[in-house]
Amino acid sequence: MSVSRDDFSIAFRSALLQRGGAQKFSVLSLIFLALIIFFLDVYGFTLVKTARSFLNDVVYRVTYLASAPTRLLPDVNKGIASHFNLKKENEELRKVIERYKSLDLNLEYISNENKNLKKVLDAEDVQSVSNIVLAKVLVDRNSPFLKSIIINKGSREGIIKGMPVTQNKYLVGRIVETNYLSSRVLLINDLNSRIPVTFDEKSTQAILTGGGTREPTLSYLPEDYQFVEDLTVFASGKDGIFTAGTPIGKTKESGEVKLFVDPNQLSFVTVNLIKPSKEVF
């Protein structure tokens, strides 16, 4: 009996403390180190935050480069066609830029008009929404737990936590982490995403809840609410984060919302530089 206990303790100690060959560090020392790093990061010490921000920027760039072969592989089969794809993509991007330019002007006009109308109504001044940043998706890792993307614009461009992210004016998510050169966008289908929305003629209010699945669901609806298919769901803006009236998707009879933008197919997004009126995260 005592021999068996000795065996156990020897094997246990050896598994934790053994070093040699490629095992330059003992498992125990690394477990302690990982625990220290974890708690420093979780409790958000300034030094760790800065270090993490720097680390994020470096790792995201390396990830982007490391993922290049997987992005390029499908194009190899297409051969010369990829060249034309690039040309086409360039043309499309030019069109997108032109569209955003016109949208910018249009927004400025609407924003001025809105300000004047607010003055007439003796209301408070509203924030300008004319600033948008076009960003490229650096990393789109399809995690089973977190639905997020990394974009190539960060605090250098004035991006802060909570800013809404759209594609073709459709809501995609919001910024949850900013680094100097990159940011993380939490997609609306993530389990942690909750968006106040409005839809139908009665302007029914609800919360769009991400479930980690492709389509988020509507919750906190009025009692005995019967779902009607094909109603457009808009952000209500009640959280002070998302712009009211931003389209999100169409309702389904099951209570799910079919998003206008497929979260798995994002390559370019726009960050709306609206300072959220509420502290986010």
Binding site: A34, L35, R52, V139, R141, S143, L146, R184
Partner: peptide
């Protein structure tokens, strides 16, 4: 952890 957006050290543990 950095790529997935988890707290640092959790995957290492």
């Amino acid at each position: 952890d950095v790529v997935m957006g988890f707290p640092l050290g959790i995957s290492s543990l």
